[in-house]
Amino acid sequence: MSYTPVVQKLIDELGRMPGIGPKSAQRIAFWILRSERVDVERLASSITEAKNKTSFCRVCFDIAEGDLCPTCEDTRRDTGVLCVVEDPRDVVAVERSGSFKGRYHVLHGAISPIDGIGPDRLRIKELLARIDPESVTEVILCTNPNLEGEATAMYIGRLLAPLGVKATRLASGLPVGGDLEYADELTLGRAMEGRISLG
């Protein structure tokens, strides 16, 4: 016994989404079938509207509902400091901290030699092209604190050095609320190197 062609097609389409396996796809499909028509239509129109109305900002490559994203359109932001992130979701994470008032640049990935992802697959050329016209004085390399993120930060840092721009990396160390005894050697070593004076 199999599902009707229309239901099977819905399950197959849902199953193509990241992190959705066949069982999850079936569960979501049956939730849709059991939902009110108005709820399903709202979901469908949200998907098509999001797809139709969004594109990448032509300056920073964050998600935008027009030519420019809200951050690039905001004239009150500091144009001299750029925060380089891997993914548009990282922009939201940094914005939530409320401690950064500059602009962003989204790379859309990180260098991963083992997966064959080199610098040519990222928006690095576009980053370098922003340095002079926008009079950038500091680039904060805010890539993930993992091997790929470190490799990307080192690579960009090497390209920025001859341009005379200050390249900085986010501090890494112990998470707030954790116990020292559970810290791994790499994290504890970095925390020790980046210690701050109390005086």
Binding site: N146, L147, P175, G177, T187
Partner: peptide, 14 residues
């Protein structure tokens, strides 16, 4: 997760 107990232990080349 940023506050995961694994930290950098399971990073490539460890």
């Amino acid at each position: 997760r940023t506050a995961s107990r694994w930290g950098g232990r399971m990073e490539p080349l460890m």
